[in-house]
Amino acid sequence: MVLRLRLSRVSTPGGAKRHHPRYNIVLAQARTARDSKPLEVLGTYNPVPELPVGAEPGDRKVKDIKVDVSRCKYWLGVGAQPSDTVWRLLSMIGLLEPKYLPTGPQTENVLKAVRFPTHEPRAATPAQSRNDGPVTKAIKDNTRAKADIGAGTTSPMNPNEA
């Protein structure tokens, strides 16, 4: 069964309310009920634009989204399917490519979405590479070579062969 990243409408805080939607961003089995207990709660989404606390006059309203970025990334990596809304939200912080793009020159700007620096691939520090043993070094070189060439089409006999 497929795992989905989706929203689940919750009644808390203060009981169920009309016109007062609050969502959890959850990981759940696709065929379970929307508000049933999920496998994991990954964050929250408040779809009502609100003025932040201590806002100055003239400040813009914000929609508040809290999400565990690394966890989302992991679940997307192992094949979890985001719903359309979650896809839209996650594409804003550059975890996914936007599903629907405007046509024309705007497209490029959209693709340059912001990305959390903490979740960018870490550049290898020189100190680390100096301390690596021969085996680790060989594997790392291989990986780098693979990354340069493209998808891995390596020989099973020679790890250093591209």
């Binding site: 813009r60 309203k61 914000v62 929609k63 809290k66 999400v67 565990d68 966890r71 912001v114 959390f116």
Partner: peptide
């Protein structure tokens, strides 16, 4: 700088905060 992102929208901003689900 590491945990907050604000994505400007047409009428409101989307404020993302990185949290730990653990």
């Amino acid at each position: 700088a590491s945990a907050l992102r604000t994505v400007p929208g047409r009428r409101w901003d989307f404020k993302f905060e990185d949290i730990s689900a653990e």
